[in-house]
Design a protein around this nucleic acid. Structure first.
Lengths: 184, 184
DNA sequence: ATAAAAAGAATGATCGTTCATTCTTTATAG
DNA sequence: CTATAAAGAATGAACGATCATTCTTTTTAT
């Protein structure tokens, strides 16, 4: 679809230059379309930004629900497998744009709404599928633990973005240790 | 000083609009100076961005070294006091700009260098003053624990930025629980 | 021939930066 | 002390480039 074409090109531009430094003409060039043509599919540049945020949202949502389904085959190593899926967060290609989205969320309420949607869903899935497996007792500050795990996930994108030469395995290892510590 | 005047105005503009959407003319208006005059103190807009990153760097560095000095009066509650200082990271006024810096670090190597400087110093201080107090044994994956704490700190800024109505105390409480869990 | 798809020129605003100019202060000379 | 010269601070208009968006034209397909 044409929309996908635009979003793919926009994703590349936004990653390289940021939302506001990227230009419609360079996005058009990347999408091999004319600028005017893009405006038949998106009413403005901001609409492209929002659509891109939502696409990223659904990517991660797919991972989350997949994890939720896998839960039914519950095993001791499920938490371990669940953690591995967080490689998504530190894909060095994906992380910079995720961070750009987070920064934009600070000033664009529409973007903030999308991000809050991710985080809420993220937390719900954890409460529903991971917490029972970890056999945490209710009095053990479960909400704080979930909040900390979300923070860790966001922190991973910051770390990998600031230092692109950082070893992703090292980052994931730290995340794994922290989550295991928090869930036992 | 005039430089401070510019940096203060730039900080406001950058926070409200981001590095690339903010304009020199609006920065000048905020600083109550003319655009031309600003160029006598900063050779370019990028120079302002870098200077601002470094100023933020030194703010947090001050906190870190203060914590390092306080260590000599070592007590069981020192780690607790140390944690409290991290309120800095989630000042809702400061967090959005910190996140903007992180996003910019993903594409501007000069900014990335500043950020990596913070994180390295942060880790060094922890290794030198917090780890001994926590009485962690060397084999207990200390580096992973430190990495996780840095991730938590960065994650806090993301969380508070995406949801400005979030309760900072709740965020700090999660951070405190996670750090305590990681250091014992 | 008609309608949809696509292109790209045109528009007006704004960008970062420069520069000729004016104002304000300090230094020098009588 | 006063008048003049030099220096530095500050201005804002002007520049060329580029921005997001619109509009007219051309291409394509039915």
């Amino acid at each position: 679809m044409r929309k996908e074409q635009v979003l793919n090109a926009a994703e590349q531009c936004f990653r390289a230059e940021g939302f506001h430094a990227a230009s419609m003409s360079r996005i058009a060039a990347g999408a091999k379309m004319s600028v005017g043509h893009i405006y038949q599919y998106f009413e403005s540049k901001e609409a492209i930004i929002i659509a891109l945020c939502e696409r990223r949202f659904s990517e991660f949502e797919k991972l989350l629900t997949a994890a939720d389904q896998g839960m039914h085959a519950a095993s001791a190593s499920f938490v371990e497998a669940w953690i591995s899926q967080f490689a998504w967060w530190i894909d060095p290609v994906r992380a910079p744009l995720t961070l750009e989205i987070m920064a934009e969320a600070g000033r664009n309420p529409k973007v903030a709404a999308v991000v809050m949607g991710i985080d809420r869903h993220f937390r719900d899935i954890m409460r529903h599928s991971v917490v029972p497996l970890a056999k945490l007792r209710p009095e053990e500050q479960i909400e704080e633990r979930l909040e900390a795990i979300i923070m860790l996930a966001h922190g991973m994108t910051s770390r990998i973005t600031a230092d692109p030469n950082a070893n992703p395995d090292r980052i994931i290892a730290a995340f794994r240790l922290a989550v295991q510590t928090l869930l036992t």
